[in-house]
């Protein structure tokens, strides 16, 4: 394949700059391979996360030529010969060092979602059709690329008011589980601010697992919130019942 030219962000919370690297590439390499080669031969202290190198763990998220992607699933032969490839850390999260960002906020949000709670006397027999719907959401590998690209978080920093697409997917997996007993619509409406999402579908576009985040998770959850809080017939009915 010959030499490739990468421009990689080097720095920490105090600042940094893009640094140029020339690397001898081999056939079939992905961006993560080139980063590893830089570590092995040029900058052993270049920080990046990775684990499985097969698109299953969601660790090596970065912005490659401006697009949020997994480095392990981005093949070098996608790029034109001689093209400079820029690799930046995810912008939405605070920088730790180089390509590693502090994603701990996501773990805090997850803690606030009440866990799966089976209905009393649940019978653990249910059809694959019902499982399919939930399994789509459970494919999520927590790469947080959807969080990175979501403008509510990326441009408006609404971390305290908005949970982000990843956690709507998580909530959907619980809410649509046929044997779950809880109702999480209040959390969605209030603390997790699902109303702030204006369904631009950017999250769906970057999802490496091709989860239909907007169509299958966010919109149905928004509908549940609307049904519960804004349905005029329901409001009237509740008034009649004195609720």
């Amino acid at each position: 394949m010959g030499k490739v030219h990468l421009r990689v962000y080097r720095g920490n919370s105090e600042g940094g700059q893009l640094r140029d690297y020339e690397v001898e590439a081999e056939e079939g390499m992905v961006v993560l391979d080139v980063i590893h080669k830089i570590q092995a031969t040029q900058s052993s202290d270049l920080a990046c996360r990775w684990n499985c190198k097969a698109g299953k763990c969601g660790s090596c998220s970065a912005e490659i030529n401006g697009k949020p992607r997994l480095m392990c699933m981005t093949r070098m032969n996608e790029f034109k010969e001689g093209e400079v490839i820029t690799v930046m850390p995810m912008k939405t999260f605070p920088l730790m060092k180089d390509l590693a960002t502090d994603v701990s906020w996501n773990y805090e949000v997850n803690k606030k979602i009440p866990p799966f709670t089976p209905v009393e006397g649940a019978v653990w027999q249910w059809e694959q059709e019902d499982a399919d719907r939930v399994q789509e959401f459970r494919k999520c590998i927590e790469c947080f690329l959807c969080q990175d690209t979501c403008h509510v978080l990326r441009d408006h920093d609404k971390m305290t008011k908005f949970a982000g697409p990843r956690f709507f997917v998580r909530t959907a997996s619980l809410e649509m589980h046929p044997l779950d007993a809880l109702d999480r619509t209040e959390l969605l409406k209030q603390e997790h601010g699902i109303g702030l999402c204006n369904i631009t579908k950017c999250c769906t576009e970057v999802c490496p697992e091709s989860i239909h985040i907007t169509d299958n998770a966010i919109i149905p959850l928004k509908e549940r919130v609307v049904d519960k809080y804004y349905d005029p017939l329901r409001i009237l009915w509740n008034k009649i019942l004195g609720k």
Binding site: N12, Q39, S43, S44, D45, L46, A47, C48, M96, K97, D98, A100
Partner: peptide, 8 residues
């Protein structure tokens, strides 16, 4: 090389 901060 470098220091102890996130240094693979």
């Amino acid at each position: 090389e470098g220091n102890r901060m996130f240094n693979p």
